Simulated scan of single mutants.
Amino acid sequence: MAQMRIGDLYGLLSRAPRRRDLEQDGIRLVYDGTAVHLSTADDPGAVIAWASTCGFVTGPWEVTAYSASLASVRAWMRMLDREDLIDLTPVWASTPVVLAFATGGQVGAWPVIACPTAPAARRPASPSTS
């Protein structure tokens, strides 16, 4: 889990490229225990932006989520107090994996394309390459 201010996460997600500017529909988020880094499925090694985390420190994780869902995630976050803390964590209790946002009793979810840090049995199926 990464814990950060809602305004910091909103700012980070605002830096994501538009879907039509991507060849692959994927926004990659990597949490290293101190910050969340943003890149794309097109170029996972190029960090576009990052935001520091605060509060709890947990193990690192990595997800690639659908950029097509980014607008609804940001719309939900605009209704929240930017200074409040939000928990951000991949949830793999079932398939498909989701990236969950939780704050003040409210929970949002972002569908995930890939989650290499999830247990093998809970990772989203990779698209066939036939």
Rank of each mutant, 00 (worst) to 15 (best):
T34K: 14
I86V: 15
T117G: 06
R20V: 02
L99Q: 04
M77A: 11
V73Y: 01
T95D: 08
G26A: 10
I113D: 11
G59I: 01
P116H: 11
V73D: 04
C115G: 02
R74F: 01
A71K: 01
I113V: 13
L9W: 06
G105T: 10
S67E: 08
D25C: 12
P17R: 07
S128W: 05
A93M: 07
M77T: 00
V97R: 01
W50E: 05
P96N: 09
L12F: 11
A35P: 00
D84N: 13
S72W: 02
R19N: 09
D43S: 15
M77D: 08
F101T: 00
G7S: 12
R20W: 06
Q24P: 00
M1I: 08
T89Q: 05
A125W: 12
V112S: 02
G45T: 10
S72M: 09
T64M: 07
T129E: 15
A109T: 13
D8W: 07
T34G: 09
G45L: 15
T58N: 14
S72E: 11
G26I: 05
Q106A: 15
V47F: 03
F56Q: 14
P90D: 06
W110L: 13
P119G: 08
D21Y: 03
L85K: 03
L70V: 02
T95Q: 11
R123Y: 07
P119H: 08
L70W: 03
A121G: 09
C54S: 15
R19P: 00
T64E: 12
Y31R: 03
T117A: 08
L13I: 11
G108F: 08
L12T: 10
S128E: 14
R19I: 13
M4G: 02
R82M: 13
R18S: 12
C115M: 06
A71T: 01
V97E: 06
S69F: 03
I86A: 02
S126T: 14
T40I: 03
S14W: 10
R20G: 04
D25K: 12
L22W: 00
V63F: 04
S14T: 14
I113R: 05
P119V: 11
L80H: 04
S126N: 11
P96G: 08
L22R: 01
P44I: 05
L99A: 07
V63R: 00
P96D: 05
R123E: 12
I27M: 08
D21K: 05
R15H: 14
P60F: 10
Y10H: 13
G26S: 06
V36H: 01
E23N: 12
A2C: 01
A118F: 09
I27H: 04
E83L: 14
A75G: 01
A75F: 02
T95V: 12
E23R: 07
E83T: 13
A49E: 12
G11L: 15
D25V: 12
D8V: 07
G26R: 00
L12H: 07
M4W: 07
V98D: 02
M77C: 05
P90I: 10
C54M: 15
T40E: 02
T95K: 06
P60H: 09
T95R: 14
L88W: 04
P44Q: 01
R123H: 05
E23W: 04
R122L: 07
V63I: 14
D32S: 12
A125S: 13
Y31Q: 05
P96Y: 07
G26E: 03
V107A: 11
P17M: 04
